[in-house]
Design a protein around this nucleic acid. Structure first.
Lengths: 231, 231
DNA sequence: CATCCCCAAAGATCAGATTTAATGCCACAA
DNA sequence: TTGTGGCATTAAATCTGATCTTTGGGGATG
């Protein structure tokens, strides 16, 4: 395993994954001591890991009681790490469907805003991303396709001019990455998916907000459909 | 100040506020030692505070360098604490406008979904919340009005049946709370605002997804307009 | 049966030892 | 002379073990 960032990061990842995957069920209590011995680390290492977990709403920590695992309602589900852990777990498909509904909430709006606010640089960046998607679709390099796809959505959200929408780029990135890394993508991406991306890019360049919105909505619908039927 | 949750929480709040308010500018570096002495706390207290700050994307911590304040792009702007700190700062209005655009992304969608999925209990909860809003609008009790308003939006998002949308209830709650606590609300809430809420509740009960969507969009537009002109 | 007090369990805090890596210095070569 | 590469220095985060403080529960007492 890698532990870039130190020991506490390792413990954090391990515990977070166990909680999110359901290995540690809500209501269950751990003690710091047990964490110490379990992972063979010192007090403050486990303390910091638990502290971050607490800041993500995954656990609560009370004296004399211990570290209690929180129910899902308390989880900060927009934290990229929580999303990644959930996509690594069992309810991967449910999570992706849930995220698709969320995306259909904001990405069409962002596309419409981008059509009104995108700079020429951003437009060309979008076009470039689409070109890369086309190229890597043919070459069958899913990893490179993922990179281009991610750049496309990040740039689009960035072009919306709204910082909150831009911040959701992390969420979309995790979704796209999880989808390919867990083999929920077709071996070669759908041709119509790429075409829709191109249509969004064109609509944004020409300032056609309505078409940008509907095409983006179609992208998400297509993704959700492909999820149910990965042909 | 209160420090429910221990010393580290105090330091966390103080540092977070200073970073978000711009008192500590991006690129600026602190050392843990300086934090220790500044707030007269011990090593692990400042360490845990900084660790949480890091998990929120507000700072990075590197050896031999210190704790570096991150630019805005890295902030986890969906963390309720970050929102609260920003609403407490100077760019309050910008932040609220940005959040309004975000809300117009997902709340209409959530309303439409709620119209298809809301349970009878949720419908009556919505109606009850609207009744409370009406009552407290007349009594002029802004705090009670806020509570009812918050319950309304939380219930609506809950009724959407999508956990990610429900999680955004925290964001909306912070927005509503910040708006009244920083006196950006009219002395007595707009009558048409309440009427729109009632229309949303009715649309959800009758399963009229389209009307729920448009009425919810109108609520957000009205709120954004009232922000620009707090009459 | 209710109340109060005492104790141990568990997290919270502290001060000190350890490890890492940025910086500046110096030797060497072009 | 000047540019480049490696090495020692040392500042800073990281980790460790011990101590302090709070708190939930059990038992004695009225």
């Amino acid at each position: 395993m890698d532990d870039p960032g130190g020991l506490h990061s390792t413990v954090l990842e391990a515990l977070g994954l166990r909680i999110v995957s359901g290995d540690l069920t809500p209501g269950q209590v751990l003690t710091l001591d047990s964490v110490d011995t379990e992972y063979a680390v010192s007090r403050s290492v486990s303390r910091e890991a638990v502290r971050v977990l607490q800041s993500m709403g995954l656990v609560t920590s009370r004296r004399r009681v211990g570290v209690t695992v929180c129910p899902r309602d308390n989880w900060h589900v927009f934290d990229p790490r929580v999303i990644r852990w959930r996509l690594a777990g069992d309810d991967r498909t449910n999570q992706l469907l849930s995220l698709s509904e969320l995306r259909s909430g904001f990405e069409p709006v962002a596309a419409a805003l981008a059509a009104e606010r995108a700079t020429p640089q951003q437009c060309s960046a979008l076009s470039g991303a689409v070109m890369d998607m086309v190229a890597h679709r043919h070459s069958g390099d899913l990893e490179a396709y993922l990179v281009a796809d991610t750049i496309f959505h990040r740039t689009m959200l960035e072009a919306s001019g709204n910082e909150m929408l831009r911040a959701l780029g992390d969420v979309v990135a995790e979704v796209l990455a999880g989808r390919t890394h867990h083999h929920l993508m077709p071996a070669t991406p759908r041709a119509d998916a790429v075409a829709l991306h191109e249509r969004v890019a064109n609509a944004i360049r020409t300032g056609d907000a309505d078409d940008a919105r509907t095409a983006m909505q179609a992208i998400i619908d297509e993704a959700a459909a492909a999820l149910a039927d990965p042909s």
